[in-house]
Deep mutational scan, measured.
Amino acid sequence: SKDTIRINGIDIDVKDLHEEWKRLVEEALKRGDEELAIELLERALKE
């Protein structure tokens, strides 16, 4: 798994994120759902 995830052309540092969150965000991006990916990231970062 990578340490960054690219959303809207912005590389976001996710190395401190739990693997499960990372996977969910990557799944959302694979489906092209950037809005969901951002929402998941925000939730993950609050934890």
Results as ranks from 00 to 15, higher is better:
S1Y: 12
S1G: 14
S1Q: 11
S1V: 12
S1I: 13
S1N: 14
K2P: 15
K2S: 15
K2E: 11
D3F: 01
D3M: 01
T4A: 05
I5N: 02
I5V: 09
I5W: 02
R6L: 09
R6D: 03
R6P: 04
R6I: 10
R6H: 14
I7E: 02
I7K: 01
I7G: 01
I7P: 02
N8M: 05
N8F: 04
N8I: 01
N8G: 10
N8S: 05
N8P: 02
G9D: 06
G9V: 02
I10W: 06
I10T: 08
I10V: 14
I10P: 01
D11I: 08
I12S: 01
I12M: 07
I12E: 01
I12H: 14
D13Q: 07
D13R: 04
D13E: 07
V14P: 03
V14W: 11
V14Q: 02
V14M: 09
V14F: 08
V14Y: 06
K15F: 08
K15C: 01
K15R: 14
K15Y: 08
K15I: 06
K15A: 12
D16P: 05
D16A: 09
D16Q: 10
D16T: 10
L17G: 01
H18R: 13
H18S: 15
H18D: 14
H18I: 08
H18T: 15
E19I: 12
E20W: 10
E20S: 14
E20V: 13
E20H: 13
E20R: 13
E20C: 15
W21Q: 09
W21R: 02
W21A: 08
K22Y: 11
K22D: 01
K22L: 15
K22C: 03
R23T: 12
R23C: 04
R23F: 11
L24T: 02
L24V: 07
L24E: 07
L24A: 11
V25S: 00
V25P: 00
V25T: 01
V25R: 00
E26W: 15
E27P: 00
E27R: 04
E27H: 06
E27F: 05
A28L: 06
A28M: 05
A28R: 00
A28T: 04
L29F: 05
L29E: 00
L29Y: 05
K30V: 09
K30E: 13
K30H: 12
R31H: 12
R31P: 00
R31F: 10
R31T: 10
R31A: 15
G32M: 05
G32R: 04
D33L: 08
D33C: 08
D33V: 02
D33E: 09
D33A: 06
D33N: 12
E34P: 11
E34F: 08
E34H: 12
E34D: 10
E34S: 12
E35F: 10
L36V: 07
L36Q: 11
L36K: 10
L36I: 05
A37V: 06
A37M: 03
A37S: 01
A37R: 00
I38T: 09
I38C: 11
I38D: 03
I38G: 08
I38E: 07
I38M: 15
I38S: 10
E39L: 15
E39Y: 11
E39S: 13
E39R: 13
E39P: 00
L40S: 01
L40F: 06
L40Y: 09
L40V: 04
L41F: 05
L41H: 02
L41K: 00
L41Y: 09
E42C: 05
E42W: 04
R43K: 13
R43S: 11
R43V: 11
R43C: 09
R43L: 15
R43W: 10
A44M: 08
A44L: 07
A44Q: 03
A44V: 05
A44I: 04
L45F: 15
L45T: 07
L45S: 08
L45R: 13
L45G: 08
K46T: 11
K46Y: 09
K46V: 09
K46L: 15
E47F: 07
E47P: 06
